[in-house]
Design a protein around this nucleic acid. Structure first.
Lengths: 208, 208
DNA sequence: TTTTGACCATTTTGTTTGAAGGGTCAAATT
DNA sequence: AATTTGACCCTTCAAACAAAATGGTCAAAA
């Protein structure tokens, strides 16, 4: 989109913008953050912001995509450190939950965004779901190959498991009408995630 | 609350009111149903309604309690027809889902009530959860006693399983922003419930 | 004991209005 | 040519206010 002329200055500037946006979005959420504020933080005019990003949603999307990228790199790295599928799943879930916490705990308002979810966010979230299903599927297949797990449809199992986990999480916030995640809630969530993971792993060890 | 004088006339009248309220609430939900409408349906004045029920929420609570009662009677009756715990769980889930459908499908608006849930409804719903956990726990214990299931904490397992199921259901509506349950959604839900039930039952068959 | 019309207080709804924020652009700056 | 910007437009949002609706009360009547 932006051609580099003199040097990589643009990349640096774009990164600066993304960082500033990340802070604002993380602190106040999508709706409560204005483009003027981000511009002010960076030290440029609002119009300049629109020179680098077509609109607010694209900027937001970029921020989230960056965070997701870091998450999947972490997953990949940690998964390769062990050869036991069961431990892999547990590690996967631990990282996932931690990501969730840092992702949401930054802001009391951020959760609100997901009530009336914008199409752009929905896209990037759907993409995230696809990727995390794929990650888990790899682990399951490895377990099946080594004869430790029995699973006819790894995709179905992965997506259903993650849906269960997401569902329980969503319930916790939906019920409590929370705008931010407290330590207490995080602990409860961690406990439940572990128990659900146990159930899931057990079910993988049975044939038929 | 209401003393009977001449005969059981009051009981009949109260039942008439509850039925009328049930129709209205089922059709339009709590918030979109007015006390005047219910009174009109019954053929009495609004003030008379308040002679029998202290307020709107108590009337609503009574309606829901009636429906719940019928549900648990059905559960109990059907459970006793089989001696296999596994089949019991499946039957339990089938009835539960069906109850859910009739309970919600009556109204496109009824789901909306559960977004900003009133304290009264929360009470009656919490009560429902307790009861359904107890029902499921009985089945699990029976499975443990006959050596078919392995489960150290039947309460924990029951509540977690039902929470998973509730979570997935809640996700389906939350995501789709549905105000009413279509056949298609019901089928998808049924499918997922069955798969989650499979996972749960498998996990019950493993020791440790 | 039961019923009701009139009444009150609060909530909801509709409307208006002024400010704020997303987004554009021609002109200026580098 | 690549960037930057102040001024500008248009839509959305929020406060404010008024009007209608609704939950709930009560004295009087049946």
């Amino acid at each position: 989109m932006v051609q580099v002329t003199h040097c990589g200055d643009n990349t640096i500037k774009i990164n600066t913008i993304i960082c500033a946006a990340q802070k604002r979005f993380g602190l106040y959420g999508l709706e409560k953050t204005t483009m003027s504020e981000i511009a002010r933080d960076v030290g440029i005019s609002k119009a300049s912001l629109y020179y680098y990003f077509p609109d607010k949603e694209h900027l937001y999307k970029k921020v989230i995509e960056n965070e997701q990228e870091a998450f999947f790199e972490l997953i990949e790295k940690n998964i390769k450190e062990t050869s036991e599928p069961e431990k892999m799943i547990r590690k996967f879930m631990a990282i996932r939950l931690n990501y969730f916490r840092t992702f949401f705990n930054l802001s009391r308002l951020r959760l609100e965004d997901f009530r009336h979810m914008k199409p752009v966010i929905e896209d990037v979230l759907a993409d995230f779901r696809k990727k995390e299903i794929a990650s888990l599927e790899i682990i399951l297949k490895q377990g099946v190959d080594t004869g430790l797990f029995f699973c006819e449809n790894t995709y179905e199992s992965s997506s259903l498991f993650l849906e269960m986990v997401r569902g329980v999480r969503s319930l916790l916030f939906h019920n409590k009408d929370l705008m931010y995640v407290e330590q207490e809630d995080y602990d409860m969530l961690l406990d439940k995630m572990n128990k659900i993971t146990n159930i899931f792993i057990k079910s993988l060890k049975i044939k038929e």
